[in-house]
Design a protein around this nucleic acid. Structure first.
Lengths: 115, 115
DNA sequence: ATAGAACAATACGCCTCCGAAACGAATTCC
DNA sequence: GGAATTCGTTTCGGAGGCGTATTGTTCTAT
C-alpha cells in the first residue's frame, strides 16, 4: 500500500521519463513499454496473439514492436516447438537489466518525493 | 516520502502504461511524455530552445513533438510579444485534463499495490 | 486426405520521426 | 545601418509506425 497525491505521482512519472530521455535510453512508446513490461513482469509464455489480445491492439503492432525491441536486444523470439505456428517471446539479459534499471530509477525518484 | 520496492514500482509503471494503451490514449513516446509533463508541471514560460536544452535533444525534436501534440490538442503555441523570435508553449484545457487523468490513474494503481 | 481455421509475418500506402543542415525572421552588437 | 547572432521552422534522405488486407505455414476436423 502506497500513499500518493496526484501531484506527487505526476512528478514521479515526469522524473522517470525525464531521466530516460536525458540518459539516452531508447525512446520507447507507451505501447512498446507496455509490451516490454508485460513480458518481464507477467509469467510466460507470451505469444504475439496473446499480447495483442491483452493490450487490445492488432497483431502487426506486436510483431513490429518485437522487431524493434528485438533489434536493440531487449527481447528475442523463438518458434514454439509444441505448436510451430506460435512464436514465444523470450527475455534477454539486456532486457532484464533495462527493466531492472527502470525499477531502480523509479525507487530512487520516489524516495526523493516530499511527503 | 514513499515506500517502494522495485517490483512494486515496476508493476505500477506497467499498470499505468497498460491502462493508457487499453483506453486508447495517444501512444506518446518517452520524449513526448516528458515534454508534456514538463510543460504542465514546471512553471512557465516554456520555449523550444529551453525544452531542447533541458531534455538534451535538438530543437527539431521539440518542434515536431509540439506539432504532433498540438495537433491532438494537448498544448498550443504562441509567439512571444516581448521577443518575437521566441515561441511560448501554452497549456490547453484538453492537455490539463489529460495530465490530470494520468495522475488519477497513477494514484488509483498505487492504491491497489500490495504492501 | 483435404478443407478449414489459426498463427505470425509481410505488403501496401500513408504518416511521424530521426539528425544534420539550411532557412527566414527578429534581435543585438558596433 | 550593416554584420553577426539567436530563434524556431523547414528540408533532406532514411527509418519506423499505423491499420487493413493478404500470405505462407502449421495444425485441426472431417
Amino acid at each position: 500500500m502506497v500513499e500518493f497525491r496526484p501531484s506527487q505521482a505526476l512528478k514521479l512519472l515526469h522524473d522517470l521519463s525525464f531521466a530516460m530521455v536525458r540518459d539516452g535510453e531508447p525512446d520507447l512508446s507507451a505501447r512498446q513499454l507496455t509490451i516490454l513490461l508485460t513480458i518481464y513482469l507477467e509469467p510466460p509464455p507470451h505469444t504475439v496473439r496473446g499480447l495483442a489480445a491483452k493490450l487490445g491492439v492488432t497483431k502487426p503492432v506486436i510483431t513490429r514492436a518485437l522487431d524493434t525491441m528485438g533489434r536493440i536486444g531487449l527481447l528475442s523470439r523463438r518458434r514454439d516447438d509444441a505448436d510451430r505456428r506460435n512464436v514465444v517471446v523470450q527475455r534477454t539479459v539486456k532486457g532484464a537489466l533495462f527493466v531492472e534499471r527502470l525499477g531502480d530509477m523509479l525507487m530512487a525518484k520516489a524516495k526523493d518525493l516530499p511527503l
